[in-house]
């Protein structure tokens, strides 16, 4: 028996090794390395110096860190509910029996497969004042306003939320759609025999059955929204001023424009801890609620 196990070990090694090596080098090692870097004054241009917790102290007193974290949180607060609810609505629409069902699914999902550069430049060209499609369309239907979609801080945020919604909501829709199709038909049949209306079917069968996947989507969405960066960098570059700069962009600029890699790594860890706490809170909320029902 023991010999068999040891021979199993030897046999498993060639299968495990290739993935193991890549995984340790490029996924695990960066996690450890990041923690190490956060204790150093780590710069590309200067000598590296151990400074203990100084980076962490700096982070707690850095108004730019808190401002960018606040912008990102605002984005999460505004975009998450719309992202989840619209995804549910689209899934319901795309699940209805219709000759165009396949077209609806495809259309709602199609933007998701485009690259962030493509959707950002599509947004820029559509939202451009004077020559963009949206404003010239407004003129065409008799509205002679010239909104600067990417200039004012409020409007810039509206544009970013709108573009991100259009680009990524299809992903959540697919998750809802898969859950909708898993609801067994007999539940609806039985309720119909009891004379339930369509509205009652939705409230008492569909919606409760979707709650588990809804929670997963909510968690994934919050995590994904906190990591927003590329489309903001390309569309507004964090502007006007720094009013739309998200946390990842601030980390990126600290690391690669100011060459302060140690402090950038510290803030990455700060973000990671926040995301971890959010995940734990959300998972805990789920289990305690699950216990009640």
């Amino acid at each position: 028996m023991r010999n068999k196990r040891i021979s199993g070990n030897i046999k498993a090694i060639p299968f495990l090794l290739p993935f193991f090596v890549v995984y340790v080098l490029f996924t695990i090692w960066p996690i450890i390395k990041g923690l190490q870097m956060s204790f150093y004054d780590w710069s590309i241009i200067k000598k590296i110096r151990f400074i203990g917790l100084e980076n962490y102290a700096q982070m707690l007193h850095d108004p730019d860190f808190w401002a960018s974290l606040w912008h990102t949180t605002l984005f999460v607060l505004f975009s998450t509910p719309t992202m989840v609810i619209l995804a549910l609505v689209l899934a319901l629409l795309a699940n209805k029996k219709s000759k165009l069902q396949a077209f609806y699914r495809g259309a709602y999902f199609l933007p998701t497969i485009l690259s962030v550069s493509v959707i950002s430049y599509l947004a820029i060209f559509m939202l451009q004042p004077y020559s963009g499609f949206i404003n010239s369309f407004l003129h065409l239907i008799g509205i002679h306003a010239e909104p600067f979609w990417m200039a004012g801080p409020h409007l810039a945020w509206v544009s970013i939320v709108g573009v991100t919604l259009w680009w990524t909501v299809g992903f959540n829709m697919i998750l809802f759609l898969a859950a909708l199709q898993d609801i067994p038909d007999y539940m609806y049949e039985a309720a119909k025999i009891d004379g339930a209306t369509r509205w009652q079917l939705f409230w008492n069968i569909t919606l409760p059955q979707l709650i588990p996947v809804g929670r997963i989507i909510l968690l994934l969405q919050v995590l994904a929204s906190y990591k927003i960066f590329a489309q903001i960098m390309l569309i507004t570059n964090g502007g006007p001023g720094t009013s739309t700069r998200p946390i990842i962009q601030y980390i990126y600029q600290t690391g690669f424009h100011k060459y302060n890699l140690g402090y950038a790594a510290t803030m990455s860890y700060g973000l990671f801890v926040i995301l971890l706490i959010l995940s734990i809170l959300q998972l805990k909320g789920q289990t305690s609620q699950g216990g009640e029902s």
Partner: peptide, 8 residues
Amino acid sequence: PGEATLIP
């Protein structure tokens, strides 16, 4: 999240 380890 991958974004948290980009710098290292």
